[in-house]
């Protein structure tokens, strides 16, 4: 199955997409994904329940987060209330290695996203901070990438031995599914997503449209 692992809704400060419109768009335009993960900026959306929406459109809708560290932005999959209490998701200067440690301790996974992007991507900070401990996966295909950003990400991943995922980083409805990640096994919960990622059973899909 194919999931877009990096999307934003109106819950994010720069997100302009309603989740129901994502679903309607995917089905109306036959976007070749089976679901998506909402990774809202600097927060985790505990309150929204997209179960009915997911069922109506036969889509998987999962939730994660995108936090900000000294190495740039990082997706967090498998967020739980204890993990949310472990560090300040709203901070714009989290230490990446601490985020990874907290994620490991709570069965979650931290994945640096758009790592080839200036300022907010991991590769831009390696010279200053060195190679961080604990990173296993990075986002190598990002739907919002410009210029050679994805190539920088892929090169960094290859050199450092990281696996790669794909996500659209959509902030408006029509950008969802531009990049994605394919899993050989069903992924219907956040726990299954983390399990599949940790097992390395996935393949990143580059921009399709």
């Amino acid at each position: 199955m194919i999931l877009d692992l990096h999307t934003h809704s109106i819950k994010s400060d720069d997100g302009r997409a309603k989740v129901q419109n994502y679903c309607q768009w995917i089905r109306t335009r036959n976007v070749p994904i089976d679901g998506f993960v909402l990774t809202e900026h600097r927060q985790f959306d505990f309150e929204s329940d997209y179960g009915e929406l997911a069922e109506r459109h036969d889509l998987v809708i999962l939730k994660g987060s995108e936090v900000e560290t000294e190495y740039g932005h990082v997706l967090v999959f498998g967020v739980t209330e204890p993990l949310y209490d472990a560090f300040d998701f709203t901070s714009i200067g989290l230490p990446l290695e601490a985020v990874i440690e907290h994620c490991d301790a709570h069965g979650a996974l931290a994945v640096p996203c758009h790592p080839g992007r200036p300022r907010v991507g991991m590769s831009a900070h390696l010279a200053e901070h060195g190679v961080p401990e604990g990173v296993r996966i990075v986002e190598i295909y990002n739907g919002g990438s410009r210029g050679g950003e994805d190539a920088v990400a892929a090169k960094m991943a290859e050199e450092l031995g990281y696996l790669g995922i794909g996500g659209s980083d959509s902030h408006i409805v029509s950008h969802i599914g531009r990049c994605a990640t394919e899993f050989p096994d069903p992924v219907t919960t956040e726990a299954e997503l983390v399990q599949a990622l940790k097992a390395g059973r996935f393949e990143a899909i580059p921009r399709q449209h």
Binding site: R16, K18, N21, W25, R146, G147, I172, V173, S174
Partner: peptide, 25 residues
């Protein structure tokens, strides 16, 4: 591209993008 229609309000929501030659938004 039209991404929402509210017939009660008579409004539509449109995704708008400006893209360069390289296809970058």
């Amino acid at each position: 591209v039209v991404t929402d229609i509210d017939e009660d309000e008579g409004t539509v929501e449109i995704d708008i993008t400006i893209t360069n030659e390289a296809g970058e938004n």
